[in-house]
Design a protein around this nucleic acid. Structure first.
Lengths: 154, 154
DNA sequence: AGGCTGACTTTCCAAGGGCATAGTCAGTCA
DNA sequence: TGACTGACTATGCCCTTGGAAAGTCAGCCT
């Protein structure tokens, strides 16, 4: 046992279903295309054809997924106009979308550390101090938290 | 733009494919069943029928996914024997599996904050100090990092 | 020997993800 | 007016995910 469970959670006899926030998150962004489109949005890509080209998904898949992400409020579809061009739309991350960043970084961190490829991928650095950035667990009092110091209460 | 990209990453003209560690992670644990089985494993559930009952997946799905997770080294299938019982197997998280915890916690954190249900789900607390635990970005020098202080180098 | 139980395996099915190709549509430019 | 471009939309296909239900199999117990 690695984690201490208390309350209803410890007594559960069957699936917790919608009460699990991991599951609820996955219902919204649980596909590869959703994650990778959000990655691109985080990288600063906003135009439809750039999102298509840089993720490698087909236009059909991208259009469908982008629409879902907009519906769920992770992206905002915003009109803009370049001089001499007609009105277009760009997709920009909302606050809800930005809040997924720790999750994306955590997945990337695992991939860099544990997937076979040795050229793991881009290393995230802290601008200015240049030290590597990691995702860590920390309590509101500022203590670093390791796994067996964690209690789940429901 | 929210994140600064440098090197190859900034110059890329097409999909990065396998060079993206997020994508590589998703190829391994990118399904709902994989995530939820890992969640259960993290909760300390080890036996096949408990994993089936508590995640709500069918035995067929659970068996298949567990096999994959074992193959990828996130779980270990380990024989054990209770007195007067025949030999059985339990599934326990390996170090590779444990390392996914920040990602799971980050997904849970997003779900609790942003998904409609008001009873968000279990709150993770720091054992002893009882403060809420969150996933945060931090550099090796110990500074908290916000999104626009992040540079990706490849 | 036969039953029971935990741990699967097998078969069949529906829904969704993703690809390829082709078509649409609106506004700008020549 | 017609071409061109960015941004979709439609169709058909295959593969994977996941569910339902039944079958298998090993070993302990009576």
């Amino acid at each position: 046992m690695v984690l201490r469970l208390t309350g209803r959670l410890a007594r559960r006899r069957g699936p917790v279903g919608d009460r699990c926030p991991i599951d609820r998150t996955l219902q919204i962004v649980g596909s590869r295309s959703a994650f990778l489109l959000l990655r691109e949005a985080l990288y600063g890509t906003t135009r439809f054809d750039d999102l298509v080209r840089l993720t490698g998904f087909t236009e059909a898949v991208a259009a469908k997924r982008l629409k879902e992400l907009v519906d769920h409020g992770l992206l905002e579809r915003r009109p803009y106009q370049e001089p001499g061009q007609r009105t277009r739309h760009e997709y920009v991350l909302t606050d809800r979308g930005h809040d997924l960043m720790p999750a994306l970084l955590a997945l990337a961190q695992w991939g860099r550390t544990h997937s076979p490829r040795k050229d793991g991928g881009p290393t995230p650095l802290h601008d200015g101090c240049e030290a590597e950035v990691r995702v860590v667990m920390q309590c509101a009092a500022g203590h670093p938290v390791v796994e067996d110091e964690l209690v789940l209460t429901s």
